[in-house]
Structure formats: C-alpha cells, structure tokens
Amino acid sequence: MISAVLLLLLIAAVVIGPFIWRVSISDIDVVAGLQGPSLAHPFGTDDLGQDLLARMIYGGRISLAVGLAAMLVSVFVGTLIGALAGMSRGALGYALMWLTDLFLSLPQLPLLLMLIYLFRDGLKAMFGPEGGIFILIVLVIGGLRWMPVARLVRAQFLSLREKEFVEAARALGASPVRQVVRHILPNALGPVIIAGTIDVAAAIIAESTLSFLGLGFPPDTPTWGRILYDAKDFLDIGPHWALFPGGAIFIAVVAINFIGDGLRDALDARKVI
C-alpha cells in the first residue's frame, strides 16, 4: 500500500513538478556551478550551473516512462517466450531456446550501433523525433533484457507442468491455455516479479549509456541515469549531484518491487506463513 502511494507520489512529482518549480532545465550559469542545495536551488546545481531540481523533475518523466515501459516489454516478451518454450515438447521449444541463446550472445554495442544506423531516420520520420526515439529506446532496452526472464520462466514451467495440481487440472480436461493461465503462471511469477524490478533500475541506467552511443535522447536532455553518470567524476567535489538521481532510482525500485510483491500475494491464495 505504502509503496503504491510512494510510486504515485514520485509520478505526481515529475508530472506536476514543472508547474510548481518553474526554473528552466537548461539555464547555464557557469559562475554558480557545483553549488550544494540552497533556497534558490533546492537540489543544488551541476558544473554548468544548471538547476538540479528542475533537471530531476524533467528527467524523472523520461526515466520513469522508459524504465516502466522497457520493463513491461522485457517481462512480457520473456514470459511469453519462456512459457511457450516451457510448455512445448518439440521443435518449437528448441527454436525458442535457440533464439534466447542467440540474443544472450549478441554483443550489445555493435548491435545498438547497427540499429541506430538502420532505423533511426525511419523511426524519426514515422513518429517524430521524440516519439521515435522513445519507442526505439524502449524496444531496444526491453528487447535486449528479456532473455533471463524467458530462461527463468521456462525452468519454472518445466518443473510446474509435472506437478500434481497441474496434472489434476489436465485430467479434469483443462485446455493448455487454462492450465497455463490459471495454474502454472501464477506459481511461476516469483522470479518474474524480481526480474521486473531489477529491470526497471537497469533500464533507467541503460538509457543513460544509450545516449553515449548517440542512440538515446539528445545529449542535452537530462534523465536520472544521465545525471548520475555525469556526476560520477565530481563525486568528491559535489556529492549532492549524484545523491539525488541515485536516491530517486532507489525509491522507484523499492516502490515497484513492493507493488510486485503485493501483486503476487493477490494472485496467490496461499499467504506467507
């Protein structure tokens, strides 16, 4: 409960924030660089004197949206492929595991560079510069992180599909879809939820590395991951700079994790002893 409130608060802050805190995210004031928190700049400033609170609010929208969307993509794709591979006893299972192995072994950097090269302009033309980049980022991050989920789900399925309660359902004539949705999947959700929470944090951070490849948002767009990355070299000079994005990512992770736990408890009749 508290966690849902926490996440809502975080989302509210980044949505309403700009209307309350009306400082520009890009005003440069070299003289006022690297200042600690003060009344004029509650979160302090970065080395170019840009206001960190404004940047955190602006960046939070992108980071939360990218984090959540990419997590949903990776969890959805991973669960789907893992479930199919876990239920299938034939060629399909092998084919899907081959796909998983392939994606696990792909070196990400050249792949990303290739994707930018091939698709950036097309997507930009189709969805506009910002929408196109958002879709590309979500698909790229989600599309490169689903493999562990798929492997975990498949492993759970291999074990669960032989369990007594599933056999009972099968004997009672439940269709494979019903077996999966009603009986197996709820019991396989544990690792999926954990993977989901880890993926949110990973996606927020991954977004920042993408902009170093020219794939992410334009370099002047602040996001939490990006702010954290920029702050790392100034850790001993201006620790406040890193503290806020780091803390924000942590709070988001905690909130999403508890929501996930709650979700599982709601789906699973048996309560923790």
Binding site: W98, D101, L102, L106, P110, L111, L113, M114, Y117, L118
Partner: peptide, 23 residues
Amino acid sequence: MIAIPSLLGISVVLFVVLALAPG
C-alpha cells in the same frame, strides 16, 4: 548434435550484425 547447426546459425547472425554495424 543440435548445438552445431544452432551455433553456425548464431555465428551467421553475429557476423552480419558486426559487418553492418558502422565504424
């Protein structure tokens, strides 16, 4: 036995990705 063709397949994809990646 299955691993051999599947690794060959992976090697083709890897090679294409690396060759297409700019730089």
